[in-house]
Write a protein that binds this DNA or RNA. Structure first.
Lengths: 208, 208
DNA sequence: CCACTTTTTTACCAAATGGTAAAACCACGA
DNA sequence: TCGTGGTTTTACCATTTGGTAAAAAAGTGG
């Protein structure tokens, strides 16, 4: 009687389930990250995943569930670099390492970056709550850590939250606004240059 | 026989035309900036503008024409602050003034910022050409100017294009990702703090 | 090979959406 | 006041879209 197939059933998922859910999520990441939630269609996801539309709805209860599954599944990966900032490390090096990791994620996971960007741009209607419960505590903590470092004279004085915003903005820019970046950089290696630029930016901003 | 009403007719538009086209564009800016092109509907624009859907299509040939009209009409406003950088001014002050103006636009024109962000995020399918023809020459010129200043020893060494990207990213972040910013800043005055932070960031980055 | 479950396909549907035709309405100068 | 041209409404469409029902087709353990 138990279903277990759809929703977040408790039973162990079969090999087929695992494979097809992964296919669907990967296709959906393509489509959602390109067109946003409302602009994406189940038909596009179906085509991109190689499954039929009803078959997709056999694995997920609806379009929205696919989207939410993607977002919440990605949240952890997305926040990992910030979690790895070591309070006992050398402040400037810790922050520069964070910048480099975020930039690297922009290069390797541009679809994920755009997925989040689309969601936030449109007011975060589907993960608004998650921002406060998952993101805020971590940001509060990290901002406090940065400001402690600054108060100890190990960094130049800085507002922790705005520093974090600026790191997000500058690193994710290369993924989110790639269309613009590409139009303006005639074939130059954007990311390699960005590493150098952002390293200098935050070093000059923060080094005592 | 001449139409003159729809499309970009040559005849002088009547008062009613002027008023209603303005209403439509304002409503469309609300809707497009919130949902992106594909996520926006003519019915939403109709409701927001107080006109009926067919009436909207009397003034604009279609949904896409409204969108393109908005984008190209805004392009000039959007690029103005960069045009106002004075090659004969004091380099650091010119750049900081540019940062402040961009930030001010983020505060006063958040819908416009999100409209562009949505378009670029989704690959700039409707203004891709405009990026190269309108934006690129100006960016090339400004980047060259900045690097000339740096070469003259009036700024620290810096890649002009990446500096511009970072200014766009950090300033527009407060408009484009407002949902996130608001979720993380408990009622603090984001923009006033941002002025201080970004002033310090670019001063430390560029001051000799 | 058989019964039983999981997976996939086929055939639909109702609502939403961009858009059109044409009639009705309205402003305003002759 | 009447006609004429610009404006708005009413009544529609064809397509697209998210989603469903149910039958067909694999798997799968015994």
């Amino acid at each position: 009687m138990e279903d277990g197939t759809q929703a977040a059933g408790g039973a162990k998922p079969s090999r087929i389930q695992l494979r097809n859910r992964k296919r669907i999520l990967d296709a959906a990441l393509d489509v959602f990250s390109m067109h946003g939630f409302r602009g994406a269609t189940l038909d596009q996801i179906a085509e991109a995943s190689g499954l039929s539309k009803p078959n997709i709805l056999y694995y997920f209860a609806g379009k929205q569930e696919i989207h939410v599954t993607l977002l919440s599944g990605l949240m952890d990966t997305w926040l990992d670099p910030m979690r790895e900032i070591d309070p006992d490390g050398e402040p400037l090096e810790e922050i520069l390492r964070y910048v480099h990791r975020k930039l690297e994620m922009s290069r390797t996971l541009p679809r994920e970056s755009r997925l989040f960007a689309n969601e936030i741009l449109q007011g975060a209607p589907r993960i608004g709550a998650g921002l406060v419960t998952d993101l805020k505590p971590l940001v509060d903590e990290t901002a406090a850590l940065i400001e402690t470092w600054a108060a100890e004279g190990r960094l130049k004085p800085v507002d922790g939250r705005h520093l974090i915003f600026s790191i997000w903005a500058t690193t994710q820019h290369y993924a989110d606004f790639d269309a613009q970046v590409q139009a303006l950089m005639d074939g130059r290696d954007t990311h390699d240059e960005a590493v150098v630029f952002l390293d200098a930016l935050y070093r000059r901003m923060l080094a005592i």
